[in-house]
């Protein structure tokens, strides 16, 4: 009977362990994506352009503007699609308006598709680096300055950037994600 007890304790331990492992997977997936660059998440830091321009190919860059379901802002991409050479500096403009009467704080989060493109997409300046503070009904133009890395794999012909604005008015002023 003693060996039963030991085995039962081990199995209960395994059960508790796997329950905790389920929760550990939440940060682990993020760590995994950070290391491998999967999931299309961009680094929110400005990058310097090397200055070399690869004119032999042109890449289509598309912009999608969304708002989170709880975000009462209007957000539109003015440049829906453009063609750029790798290494070339480009600029895309967006229109954003606070539709409420109160001051709100928003933060845009970007996702790149195909995700392999994420690490070759360099932003020299972006409205998504900062929190956007808009007064009631205030409208504003925001923009992103970017360039594509000349090392971008050949099979990538088109890159789509999807920006989503989130309401962070109630959050402490910390950099989101």
């Amino acid at each position: 009977m003693k060996s039963n007890r030991k085995l039962i304790l081990q199995l209960c331990g395994a059960t508790v362990g796997m329950f905790l492992f389920g929760f550990a997977l939440v940060p682990l997936y993020d760590v995994f994506c950070d290391i491998t660059g999967l999931n299309g998440k961009l680094e929110l830091v400005a990058k310097k352009n090397t200055g070399v321009i690869d004119t032999s190919r042109a890449i289509k860059v598309q912009f999608i503007a969304n708002t989170n379901e709880n975000m009462p802002w209007d957000f539109v991409a003015k440049d829906v699609e453009m063609t750029v050479h790798p290494g070339e500096n480009a600029r895309a403009d967006f229109f954003v308006q606070n539709l409420t009467n109160e001051q709100m704080v928003g933060q845009a989060i970007v996702s790149v598709s195909p995700s392999i493109g994420a690490k070759y997409f360099h932003k020299t300046q972006c409205f998504c680096f900062d929190r956007q503070v808009l007064n009631g009904k205030q409208a504003q133009e925001v923009s992103v300055l970017f360039s594509l890395d000349t090392d971008l794999p050949d099979r990538v012909k088109k890159i789509t950037l999807s920006y989503t604005f989130f309401d962070i008015t109630d959050l402490q002023p910390v950099a989101a994600n």
Binding site: T15, V16, G17, M18, F19, L20, F21, G22, F23, L25, V26, N68, E69, N70, M71, T164, F166, D167
Partner: peptide, 26 residues
């Protein structure tokens, strides 16, 4: 694996009732 399922539905429970955001992009 059953404990992982238990963990997953627990996350749903806290997302729905206790204001966590395991599965909510917002």
């Amino acid at each position: 694996v059953m404990p992982v399922l238990a963990g997953t539905v627990t996350m749903m429970l806290t997302d729905i009732h206790f204001g966590t955001s395991f599965f909510d992009a917002g």
